[in-house]
């Protein structure tokens, strides 16, 4: 039986990190977790997944919510805790998988089988990608990109001891712009395979 491998991929908005993660999971035959984990959580809580979606990878609204001891009434934080439990449970079950974002590199930092990757990109490449993917104007794409990156950064930094995208805390940080999504995914697969071989 192959040794457990967990690949955590964090990404800047528009860098293609999500697509890269999906390709890696497909090529290596690993399970893939992203926003889809919300379905399982929604099912467990008996709520509509659309209700949870707006709180996914979102920071806590510090003016509208409060924490008392271990209790918080921030849906964003409660959902984050559910997602962290989901990730921990999957890791504890011995399953190998690729996971996108959700502070997974922090949640699973004590797992030897974790490979953490951060995908960033050049601004113009990311912008072009966002414009094309969402059919947006330049200004709309810039606003969307800034909004999502800010949200991810705040969310990450709230739940982690280190800063989002700080290269010192990831195994590998890669700019997807020079090689594009497919070749970046290929480079990462080679790295992951070498790491998997070293783990045996």
């Amino acid at each position: 039986m192959a040794k457990q491998t967990i690949i955590s991929i964090s990404r800047e908005f528009g860098s293609g990190g999500h697509e890269i993660a999906e390709k890696i999971a497909q090529h290596l035959g690993l399970k893939f977790y992203d926003r889809s984990m919300l379905d399982e959580i929604a099912n467990k809580l008996n709520v509509k997944v659309e209700v949870l979606e707006k709180y996914d990878e979102a920071p806590r609204n510090f003016l509208m919510t409060r924490r008392v001891g271990n209790h918080t009434n921030s849906m964003a934080e409660i959902l984050a805790e559910y997602q962290f439990d989901f990730i921990r449970d999957k890791a504890a079950s011995g399953e190998s998988f690729v996971i996108v974002g959700r502070c997974s590199e922090t949640v699973l930092k004590n797992h030897d089988c974790l490979i953490s990757i951060f995908v960033n990109g050049d601004r113009e490449h990311k912008l072009a990608r966002v414009k094309e993917k969402y059919q947006l104007s330049e200004s709309e794409a810039v606003a969307k990109m800034l909004r999502h990156d800010k949200k991810r950064k705040l969310y990450h930094n709230r739940h982690s001891d280190y800063k989002w995208g700080d290269s010192r805390y990831y195994d590998l940080c890669i700019n997807s712009s020079p090689l594009g999504v497919d070749k970046t995914a290929h480079v990462l697969e080679c790295y992951i395979q070498d790491r998997m071989a070293a783990m045996k």
């Binding site: 008996n46 709520v47 008392v68 209790h71 918080t72 009434n73 849906m75």
Partner: peptide
Amino acid sequence: PIGASANVVGTSVATKNGYI
């Protein structure tokens, strides 16, 4: 919901159980 500790705890317990 943020005015007193009981409010935070009560709404937190409810939300954790799917009653947002």
